[in-house]
Design a binder for these strands. Structure first.
Lengths: 333, 333
DNA sequence: CTGAAAGCGCTTACAG
DNA sequence: CTGAAAGCGCTTACAG
């Protein structure tokens, strides 16, 4: 049924070796022989079997990518960025998701151990990296994105989390807000620590060091933003700004503030982080620290492809810049 | 370096055939032999090579999935639904994206032709299905999701688009809105035609048939929602409701109405379609026709897995129900 | 219960 | 410029 290598050889009256040579354009082949073989290939509609090529060559031309749930809106941008870069180099993208936690991770690890891909892009899973570090140690090229734990031993693509936090602080100070609340993600994540450090530094440098009751630990969900505002309202604590460490929780903050009967940005200015698509369409539109998700995905893919091409993986982190995007939640249009 | 099949056979002093038997638990093997081999496997940390198994067995245990850009928010839910179902059956997910249009499709087709997956899940690309129909005709199991063109020849998972449109009409009629505007997606898509038909039927049955100036063709973007409202405002055309055919354009409609100085829902009630995550967090929250994205992805994966297991693919469409979710954009909380 | 051998569809030294 | 042969790492009749 399926047209195979042998068919091509037989139909064109040459050896398999020669077919292989014209297929891969390597080695000297008589022009006319080559044309004849190529003609047969075209006529038969022959396509080499990826499996067989992979087995013989010891490579799959496939990259594995592990991400937490795709339901986080920023995750799809990262995946899309990687997918575009991989596609351009004709690499396949084997997508793994961790919605089932450790079980997913185990399955991922065994699939990778089965050599189903040449390298790995990993967006750090919540449940840790043990198996991934192992795979890396065994020589599998791995690139991480935004390591929540600090793993200097793995090549990583990050954004300027600290500078991003600082830019949020500077902006809020510029518009005269001296009593902000910070709503973080889980503080065990390195990115949250960095964003917090940058923000806190900014306020400290301006003579308004943060007090502990100005920092609330959240979990990146809309719900945590809303409930944090409700709790603040109940406590009677005053504040004139909120820096939420992602746009989802910032959206919750906007809703929560509205429910308190306060006005954004007149009473409370709000800054988010990420700049996901919805940030431009909340009411008011959200000022936020743009994180270049697609570029991060593309950068990780680029590093990995370079490594597969023989280049060494960088020992330092690859850092992409964040950028403050000012919208109506801090400055009325 | 890598532990291989032969190593296991040598270390346990049996033939490769026997190793294969214990690996796949098929055929009779002496219990003690089996244990010995298994012991070696565990000790060596042997993992079968997916490529070699695939080549020998003629299957890859991998499913290809083709989607338009992941940037459409509903797409990630579909992918996640499929990913979960596939993972549960230990199938890999090879993700292809069409951000480069025909070029992406060509690459996809040739990758699939190279037998890199056992079956296909396809969310209909904008640029047509020629090559996919071909692959299907050659015997590759294919399941489509939400065919924008009607392709009765391919097994398809859809939702009740028509009933969904009708439910939006019924709800708006219930709250006394007799002069709605419909903002569609590209009308060449079957789903838009169906949603429009259902909606129009509802209004016609209630004695308020739609006039042509009540239907505006959009393109599913936030921007089209906003600009449609601006255009209506400029024209002076009155209306008391908008049915937008996805939540993104509905979000644009909310913004556009606000810019006209009108109040939602008092002046204009708004209904969207999809129920993506942000729908619950717009201001006001969006009443919308919920489309079971994850379930659709899971259903498609389920059908495909069944087909790979030998079951015949259904010749009829698999239809999943939509459900109206009422929020503040039509009924004040 | 177990093994020798052929085969899956390619690539790659090695000879000529 | 071209081909015979071994090999990639498994599975699967076929014998015993």
């Amino acid at each position: 049924m399926r047209v195979t290598f042998g068919d091509v050889a037989a139909h064109s009256g040459v050896s398999k070796t020669t077919v292989s040579r014209v297929l891969n354009a390597k080695g000297e082949v008589d022009l006319r022989t080559a044309q004849r073989v190529q003609g047969v290939i075209d006529r038969l509609g022959y396509v080499p079997s990826a499996r067989a090529v992979g087995l013989a060559r010891g490579r799959t031309s496939t990259v594995g990518m592990l991400v937490p749930s795709l339901r986080w809106p920023w995750m799809s941008d990262i995946v899309q960025g990687a997918a575009d870069a991989l596609e351009a180099e004709k690499y396949g993208l084997l997508l793994y998701t961790c919605t089932r936690g450790q079980e997913s991770l185990d399955q991922f690890a065994s699939s990778v151990a089965a050599n189903s891909c040449d390298g790995l892009i990993v967006v750090v899973p919540e449940s840790g990296l043990g198996q991934i570090t192992d795979l890396h140690a065994r020589g599998l090229p791995v690139v991480m994105i935004d390591d929540r734990e600090i793993r200097p031993d793995l090549p990583t693509v990050v954004c300027t989390n600290r500078a991003g936090g600082a830019s949020a602080a500077r902006h809020l100070l510029d518009i005269g807000r001296h009593d902000p609340i910070v709503l973080t993600g889980l503080l065990e994540f390195g990115c949250c620590q960095d964003r917090l450090a940058g923000f806190a530094d900014g306020y400290a440098a301006a003579g308004h060091p943060l007090a502990t009751d100005q920092v609330i630990e959240g979990d990146f969900t809309v719900e945590c933003g809303r409930s944090a505002m409700a709790a603040l309202g109940a406590s009677g604590r005053r504040f004139d700004a909120v820096f939420a460490m992602n746009d989802l929780s910032a959206a919750g903050v906007l809703a929560g503030i509205r429910e308190l009967g306060l006005i954004v940005p007149a009473d409370v200015a709000v800054v988010g982080f990420d700049d996901i698509a919805v940030a431009a369409h909340t009411d008011p539109a959200l000022t936020t620290v743009h994180q270049p998700m697609r570029a991060m995905g593309a950068a990780a893919a680029g590093l990995l492809l370079a490594a597969l091409g023989g280049a060494p993986l960088p020992s330092e982190q690859t850092v992409l810049p964040t950028r403050l995007v000012v919208r109506g939640s801090t400055v009325p249009p």
